[in-house]
Design a binder for these strands. Structure first.
Lengths: 163, 163
DNA sequence: ACCTACCGGTTGACGTGTCAATGATGCTAA
DNA sequence: TTAGCATCATTGACACGTCAACCGGTAGGT
């Protein structure tokens, strides 16, 4: 049996004003951080973070190629999102798609030389930006705490499920 | 003078493997958290977090109305983003726009009764979701740490400027 | 054999965000 | 006065994400 009367400690439904202020700071700052990294990467390499994630996965893959659905699960994207994104990347010559030899239904995604080159050029500036924006901003203890917070939030997301 | 040889502590340019792992956990988890909150809000109220931010600011404003540019700076959006968003909200009847009486070329944004009602209906479920996804996921110490991390990251964003 | 159910992938519609260009209007300096 | 010039707001083009519908093909059950 849970508390029947709302508004009391233990049965409280809503965040306090302090919790809410921290929530807003936290979610807005992390969102801004993401978009600033995005625009830095864009300026340095004309790649988006999505492009980068795809190219990273392909670079590390056997033969610089992967099945579309495996790529999707590797980088944690929905299939339709990946399909749209691959279409845009293909138009820019970063990847190619071809029918898969082994699996009848499957599409194979391959890295082009243009894509590999773009990825190599983007890597160093991107990692440097992560250091400047994130690592340099925090103390070593805060970095550890950030990792623990991420783990705890992820666990809660898993607990709550897809809703 | 800084360290001339890269790869050593003190002159290091790139994040360590541990730092990079934490970075990825952190940025991906916070992004997922944001989109899960977004879809929860959408399901509960048919509002996006953007809608919510606009409606919140208008609700708190004198006469439930604001100049467009003041609204933009209040919620920290670029003008064009706000203009596009207000267009979509106007189509749904959540707000109205009219020429400003006091400032010649200013646009006044006003809350409609539909918008006010939608906001009232969304508030409680949204705050409850913040509690479930964020407050309940963390210990009190972690919430404080999250606030400090946000502050430190924000300070670094300010230091690095618009680039 | 046939119907159905699923699976991998694509597509279209639409909301959202950024950037650059465009009005529309006041302010200031030659 | 008028030629710039900054400011307020909108617009168009495009990238990105989600959702739902769709397509082609394989697998099971009858």
């Amino acid at each position: 049996m849970t508390e029947a009367t709302p508004g009391r400690r233990g049965g409280r439904q809503l965040p306090t004003a302090d919790e809410l202020r921290i929530w807003r700071d936290f979610i807005e700052t992390t969102a801004t951080l993401g978009s600033r990294l995005e625009s830095r990467l864009q300026g340095d390499s004309s790649l988006s973070t999505g492009d980068y994630a795809v190219l990273l996965a392909l670079s590390e893959a056997e033969g610089e190629a992967m099945r579309s659905s495996e790529l999707a699960s590797r980088i944690g994207w929905e299939r339709s999102r990946l399909s749209h994104h691959l279409g845009r990347m293909e138009r820019r010559g970063l990847i190619r798609r071809q029918e898969c030899a082994t699996v009848p239904r499957g599409a194979e995604v391959l890295l082009t030389t243009v894509g590999a080159e773009a990825f190599r050029g983007a890597t160093y500036p991107h990692l440097r930006a992560i250091r400047e924006f994130f690592v340099d901003a925090l103390t070593p203890e805060q970095i550890v705490a950030a990792g623990e917070i991420a783990t705890a939030l992820r666990a809660q997301l898993d607990v709550l499920g897809k809703d």
